[in-house]
Amino acid sequence: MHSKRLCLLALFLGGCIAGYLLLGARGNWAFVLPFRGNKLIALLLVAIAVSTATVLFQTITQNRILTPAIMGFDALYVLIVTILVYLLGGQVFLQLPAVGQFVFNTTLMLVAALALFGSLLTRARGDLMRMILTGIIFAVLFRAITDFLQRMIDPNEYAVIQISSYARFARIEVELLAIASVLTCAALIATWRMRHRLDVLALGPDAAINLGENPQRGMFQALIIIAVLVSVSTALVGPMAFMGLLVVSLAHMITPTASHAVLLPSAALISAITLVGGQFVLERVLGLSTPLIVVVDVVGGGVFLILLMRGKRR
């Protein structure tokens, strides 16, 4: 049943991609296709990174309403970039090669995420509401500090941050796209190899220990993968508060299973359809100027509220 639905999703995604690449293109195909192609690759990378990070996060926390973005991972990444520009100065920062910048940011992100969320996830496990609220306030705090630092920085250097944390859809650097692809692929391979262990970890720490899995080790590895994936997606397009929640909730509805071998591809496909198809509809069909993320956030936020109120807090 699930494989059939996965095939249908894949077909649908294929349609979206074709429509996105081909429809409404006027003039020089040699120019349009590579341009749109790059943008498409970025969309796909972001989509898969967000959905995979969200699935991993929900597995290690055993609930359906937490996502890295809600817990402030995206905001943390932007904050780290801002702190770097603040400390090093925009010019120094810009002179670093794009790959170096990216790897450096991601490494810092990893350390910070493990330090902050590793302890939060272990300690506050018993009290889910407190944990989510802490995460949301973390996100608010990270954004406030980011905003504060950005205003402390020279206006010229401020521009640097805007380049490095937002609006990559407009002009995507091929170099960054390459390193992002490599990192995402590595993270995806690691996740896929973990898929059976993830099934066990999702049963909860006690059941995992009973079956001979070390939940701490699993959580640590999952957090590393999450940090890499969040870095990729945030660096490419900026923070997306409710995107992950939306697509993974949809995946649970369309392919209701606990098996990660199905859930991971299903969420990735739905995520890609949401981004590519949504971008296609918004840009080409409706001709709206609003970024897709704003729409996704409204819908995803609504889903979050409904999940909270329905009592599906686990």
Binding site: Q62, N63, A202, L203, G204, D206, A207, N210, H252, P256, T257, A258, R314
Partner: peptide, 10 residues
């Protein structure tokens, strides 16, 4: 293990 209610999809 304690009754598993976290993964009701099994």
């Amino acid at each position: 293990p304690q009754v598993i209610d976290t993964a009701p999809l099994l």
